[in-house]
Amino acid sequence: MERPQPRAGDLSWRLSSHPITLLFFLGFRISSLLFYILGSLFTENFILVFIVTILLLAADFYYLKNIAGRRLVGLRWWNEVNTASGDSHWVFESQDRSGSAESGAPSQNATDKRFFWLALYAQPAWWVVLAIVSVVRLLNPIWLSLIVIALILTITNTLAFSRCDKFSQASSLASSAMYSGGMAKSLAGGLFSRLFRG
């Protein structure tokens, strides 16, 4: 039986433009979850499970923040400290992935994008489920501490990337308006709305 031809945006790793990055990304995400589940089911050795899961979570956090994010969807965030005052603020960076010929920008791979956002939002949800399960199973509350750490790490990344995506759309809207002559339209639109409201 012939398999149906995959369409753009399908969740198949063969359509990805960065298959190795994608594989590692999903690998880190799944392995931390899997290790925790198997560890809490089959072994009493809390210390081993704790250390390995934390290290996997840290690797996942680092990989998503610094490598997978910018290679799969062209987004990057970091936190910067102003040495004079000690204030920290978030900085977001995005790559132009409009694929337009004028600016020579690369285009966004739809499969990578779907995988990325699905994994980004699914991960905290899974940890919430595991937290509920561990409460129901009356596990030693010590396991909850591991879940709390996992939730903090994954939710931080999710929030930061969704924020970063919002910023990047704001800037790409601005530039696409410039490129395609939509400027006149939006200028006229703004003028109109102001006239009517004035």
């Binding site: 965030w77 603020h89 978030w90 900085v91 977001f92 960076e93 995005s94 929030l159 930061a160 924020r163 919002k166 910023f167 990047s168 704001a170 800037s171």
Partner: peptide, 10 residues
């Protein structure tokens, strides 16, 4: 954009 997480795009 600054409403919940203040930041800058650059």
């Amino acid at each position: 954009l600054n409403s919940s997480i203040p930041g800058e795009d650059r």
